[in-house]
Design a protein around this nucleic acid. Structure first.
Lengths: 348, 348
DNA sequence: TTTATTTGCTTAAACGTTTAAGTATAAACA
DNA sequence: TGTTTATACTTAAACGTTTAAGCAAATAAA
């Protein structure tokens, strides 16, 4: 049923010329290869008339280029990742690249499988938010000169191009914001992990707290599921009734935090200031709206593509690039100036 | 730098056998093709030892199959689409397929370009939330026996496999829910469009209102941007102060609706019951939580993949399939039983 | 006029698989 | 015993491009 598709050879036969010539013209090398203008025009008009579409498979096979970029993240449904995916697609398309994606579920095994499959499929480049433990696999890919840009998290053992945000300073800024609003007992809730971006956030918190001479309230959650996380946070709040502010180190913890706070009689923005690392629609619509550290999604995507295009054009062995972007602390009602008590005022 | 990759011919040479035999064994056809167990084992162990990875490009080129599915939606960053994408990836991976995605921004031109590019890349199948006006292009693809499953929206002029939800009955159910809670002046806010799924939702509203003998309050917004939409909804609310319930026909209108209602002195769940078509985290965390018509994302993905695999295995000319799934009306505080006034009670 | 260069093409190989068709030997059958 | 069938492979073509190498004619340079 399926009609045999037109090949470059069919075109050549119809015009009484060779496949080579047709190939040159189709690829815009007519002039360069000294094809006469007359023939160029004849070929181009036939291509248009017959709506010839080159067989991308044959082309890829021959050239080894697929014009495909592998995009690997924890979970495409997470707003942060789908937001990045959106811009990556937009910008990569402009260069003729398409995006093949898959989700690792933050599993080393799944991540390794995806790396292998995408590699076998000869993607021209990788964009990855890499689970820990896959340094060797990625190194292997880099060693074959396939460009790789990692984002969101940093793997100290892995020499590679990176696009990251300044996690430490972002949290320092958030913490200082709370401190300058009079908060004295600021908690930081994070997950038990060895992912660098999370550790850096914690470091930022501790530095800011120490610099201000305040007491540190650090809560690490061994993340199992939402219910467990909510109850851990709720318990933590109950056991630390002196807290006047709380920072959550990532967006899903912020959501769990909202649920946990709802089980207490604490009023966000009044009894307890709150800041979320990572923004979400929920945080903007919540009453009161929740202050958030916002990652510059479009800029991240921009930088990633910029680096990839640079590497794809001329991947001479050069130093690896490490781009670190600033975040934006969007101050909303949840952390606006607190009514400081008389005692606080006197203490100043 | 890049080492020449191992080919099937290299393996054959090393073993003193032919490429054909190696190919048979690698593809698990050793037994079927009468290759001796001894040789099968020798080949398999060499493959393992040298970690031979077949060149997927050559394979695709030869077979015409890419093991790739094109996934085309309005905008991958929209939670509905990224939610579907997640399950599509999960389920397609299980069959060895990977997902190439791109976003049309609901533009006919962009959609048409993506269709063409994916087609040239020989994706084995398409999953599409199709903008209006591309019926011809999709028909052309279907005519070449490439499986296409459309979802989210129905194009009456296009004979194809579809996975849809029952828009009309979902809204009827939502409207009846409000009616049974005593609402008498129920508005329906939708967009000016010719997309069938939206029209069906409106039809559901009007049927339910008519059946109950109530007055219809239908507001169609010519969607330009969020600010305009919010102000249109706010005006509509102010001009119809008798309203006691409002239904939004899609998730972004629900968000705009929340913003609009915030500009009035109406209290959701008290003065005004609210229902959203499509769920969002925002709606669950909002105070009060907003009742929503929830689409069964995983089931939708399941059905899509089921149909595709069926078509990919044996795409004999058979009637097109149309799967229509039920939604789930999740009742939350925003639409819980209203306190009916004395007048209402007496009127019964 | 002879030689070198440019113009305008073509030939043929290569990319790594799959697979139809074939071959040679061994086993089974008549 | 001769014939068929099964076993265990191999040969070679094909998929549609790209591209290095080459060639003939026209033009320019010497």
């Amino acid at each position: 049923m399926r009609e045999k598709k037109l090949s470059i050879i069919d075109l050549a036969k119809q015009l009484g010329t060779s496949a080579t010539t047709v190939s040159f013209v189709i690829n815009g090398k007519g002039k360069e290869k000294n094809i006469s203008t007359a023939l160029i025009e004849k070929i181009e008009s036939l291509v248009a008339e017959l709506n010839y579409q080159p067989n991308a498979l044959a082309k890829s096979f021959r050239t080894g280029k697929t014009m495909t970029i592998g995009f690997i993240v924890d979970e495409i449904a997470q707003p942060f990742f789908s937001g990045i995916a959106r811009f990556i697609d937009e910008k990569a398309s402009a260069y003729g690249y398409n995006i093949l994606f898959s989700s690792t579920k933050n599993s080393k095994k799944k991540g390794s499988e995806i790396l292998q499959v995408f590699n076998e499929r000869c993607v021209d480049a990788f964009i990855i938010a890499l689970p820990n433990g896959l340094e060797k696999e990625v190194e292997q890919i880099i060693s074959t000169d396939v460009p790789v840009v990692l984002f969101d998290r940093y793997l100290p053992a892995l020499e590679s191009d990176y696009v990251l945000i300044d996690n430490e300073n972002s949290v320092i800024e958030a913490t200082n914001h709370l401190i300058s609003n009079g908060c004295k007992h600021i908690a930081f809730v994070t997950i038990e992990t060895d992912q660098m971006q999370m550790l850096d956030r914690t470091i930022g918190y501790e530095k800011a707290i120490k610099a201000a001479g305040l007491e540190s309230y650090l809560k690490k959650i061994d993340y199992q599921n939402k219910a467990h996380s909510v109850s851990e946070i709720a318990d933590f709040l109950k056991q630390n009734s002196q807290l006047d502010a709380i920072i959550f180190s990532c967006n899903y913890l912020s959501m769990d935090g909202l649920d946990a706070i709802a089980t207490t009689n604490l009023k966000i923005g009044e009894d307890l200031a709150m800041v979320s690392f990572d923004d979400l629609d929920v945080l903007r619509y919540f009453k009161p709206a929740i202050t958030a550290v916002i990652q510059p999604l479009e800029k991240i995507a921009d930088k990633i593509i910029e680096i990839l295009i640079y590497r794809l054009r001329d991947n001479a062995v050069k130093d690896k690039l490490k781009v670190i972007l600033n975040t934006n602390l969007e101050i909303r009602a949840s952390s606006k100036a607190k009514i400081t008590t008389a005692v606080d005022v006197l203490n100043k």
